[in-house]
Design a protein around this nucleic acid. Structure first.
Lengths: 349, 349
DNA sequence: TAATTTTAAACAATCGATTGCATATTAAAA
DNA sequence: TTTTAATATGCAATCGATTGTTTAAAATTA
């Protein structure tokens, strides 16, 4: 690590006997610069291996050209895909991404968001942690703080509903509704629900879709078939054991929280010799890669995650364009898609 | 988006009738500041919701406290895990991560690396794309360029061997050797190899391990059992069809490139009614989540990816400490672990 | 040819924080 | 009481790029 001094516009300027301003204009292709000198400057810049100091540039211009992203976990398929989508768009625009993970912890989320504000990012993109209870008002102060600093805030997927920001979400209720309808079509009569922490809107919406579908098809809601807080593989398995132990066990389970909990369901079913999908239908949520590979493959809901990332990023740039004219609050809803696989198909076509 | 003006140290200074220097000293806890005024400054900073402008600070200090990471794909399990590991360490040190994906394209990799140099990151962490042929010297100019700018460069997993940098790798040869030895133990006699692009060292090493194991066990190397460039699921499937069509087909396949190609093998086997592991043994590489879930589950090699990320990050900070005294080139090798699952176990214990 | 416009390039301020140096004040030591 | 050291704060330069204002030169028009 030799701390080699970087070439600056001053180096170029003094070498060519012009002023730094001219160099800057030449490099940025703005204002007046003689064609000959411009070429000379560009050539010298190349020769001296000049790289613009973005820090200085951004400081002067008052922007950071950086977007901060906070997700619960980077290495979770859905989020990794969203980030990949965001990156694809922002990279083209010359923006950088700063990635943080909250590890599903409220404190780390707050800390991460504060760091980003500190960094003067131009925009914060976030999917809140499970601990971030959006009902208790104070718990979203860190997000309000982002707005107070004049920084754009975009929430996606797991959003704090009452906060007036840009949002990109899935139509969870609709997806959920379709999943249940499909299961009813397949002749399942007692459909159980594994629900997630109800402080997160997405899980409330998925439950609503479930309730709505039952109602529309004239089926009763049976309380004992609704299992709270079953959002990991282990909790999903636990819930399943409880359900299967009922006097009247369900003939289908909708693991509305994730494919991981659906996997938990499947494993318990396999272990206890219950036939899927004949005796028990299973539907997950998220279309994780593995759902296609299990035996039987798992019916699930695709959230178009990469596409969601692109939508988020595009939304930012779009809002930036007409920054003055536009309302603060806006929600884009992406319709997810039910992917029907073996785990719920008990009727032959 | 009201373009609210941010509070600066000047605002605090003028409000309290002190100089910006004093404010700076108070906030940084450096130099002499009267205890009373310091408290006052801190309190006022809090009140005015002051956040240090990192751009200005870093510009002045000549560092960016930012680390750039370039990987082929963010949303690939292995890389997502490595990034998660890196993030965990760097976050604690107050560093930011800029993430880029090369999409396995040489051009985008070069562009990404240049962007990072442009950003004056303190360190570039990279796993090169498959197109980055490390043999053709010019193809690594972008990496040399990083070094030339006095920026630390750390390569991991897919490294350009001949470049003298810090490296964190797996002992691919050893892992490969163990995998083949295990298969031989299980009584497989004709073990095929799906190999990856040989311009990447990792794939050469894995092949070496294969060759070495055969040799050590006195088994012949059969050319027609080595399939070049079979590193995606599709290519893996294609290679498998070719292998199974041989006059003397193999009784085991080592998909040394990835679990994805192993999956391709498995699917072809299933489709043609070949029993795994009885008639055909299969071993993958990387321990992707799904390898545990397929039927039968796939034997594979765990690379300790999150841990690898942490190692990389720690290596950076460690080298930074003794920046002057230390050699430029250094390699840390992590021993991966063979995970034996159903797809290669045809002997009952 | 004089007046006007266009083009070229220099000058200097600015973005916000940091820091070496200088000055002033206070406390401690001689 | 004087000298010396410690403390507190101000001043001004600096990091590197950008940009509004000026001045100067060249090109165009009247």
């Amino acid at each position: 690590m030799k701390p080699k001094k970087r070439t600056t516009i001053y180096d170029i300027a003094s070498k060519l006997n012009v002023t730094p301003s001219s160099v800057s204009r030449a490099l940025n292709n703005t204002g007046y610069v003689n064609e000959t000198t411009k070429k000379l400057i560009l050539k010298t810049a190349e020769e001296l291996n000049y790289k613009r100091n973005i820090l200085a540039s951004n400081l002067r211009k008052g922007e950071s050209k950086t977007i901060g992203v906070v997700v619960p976990r980077i290495n979770q398929n859905f989020f990794a895909n969203v980030i990949a989508g965001i990156e694809e768009v922002t990279y083209k625009k010359g923006y950088n991404l700063i990635i943080c993970q909250s590890n599903e912890e409220y404190d780390k989320e707050v800390q991460s968001v504060n760091t980003l504000v500190n960094q003067h990012v131009d925009c914060v993109i976030i999917s809140i942690s499970v601990e971030t209870n959006s009902d208790e008002t104070n718990n979203c102060r860190h997000l309000q703080n982002v707005l107070d600093h004049g920084i754009q805030l975009i929430q996606f997927d797991r959003v704090a509903d009452e906060l007036e920001t840009l949002k990109v979400i899935n139509d969870n209720e609709q997806a959920s509704y379709e999943a249940i309808s499909h299961m009813i079509d397949q002749g399942y009569k007692r459909i159980a629900l594994l629900e997630g922490p109800q402080n997160l809107a997405i899980f409330r919406q998925r439950k609503n879709g479930y309730l709505l579908a039952l109602e529309k098809h004239g089926m009763p809601v049976i309380d004992e078939l609704v299992i709270e807080n079953a959002w990991t593989k282990e909790l999903g398995a636990e819930g399943t054991r409880k359900l299967l132990g009922l006097a009247e066990p369900p003939d289908a389970i909708f693991a509305s929280t994730s494919d991981f909990s659906a996997l938990g369901v499947l494993e318990v079913a396999m272990a206890t010799g219950i036939q899927v999908p004949q005796q028990l239908g299973i539907c997950g949520y998220s279309n994780e890669d593995f759902t296609e590979l299990t035996y039987p493959s798992i019916t699930t809901i695709d959230q178009y995650s990469v596409n969601m990332g692109k939508t988020v990023a595009n939304l930012y740039f779009q809002e930036r364009e007409n920054a003055d004219t536009v309302a603060v609050s806006k929600t884009i809803s992406i319709k997810p898609k039910l992917i029907i696989r073996s785990s719920t198909q008990r009727l032959k076509e």
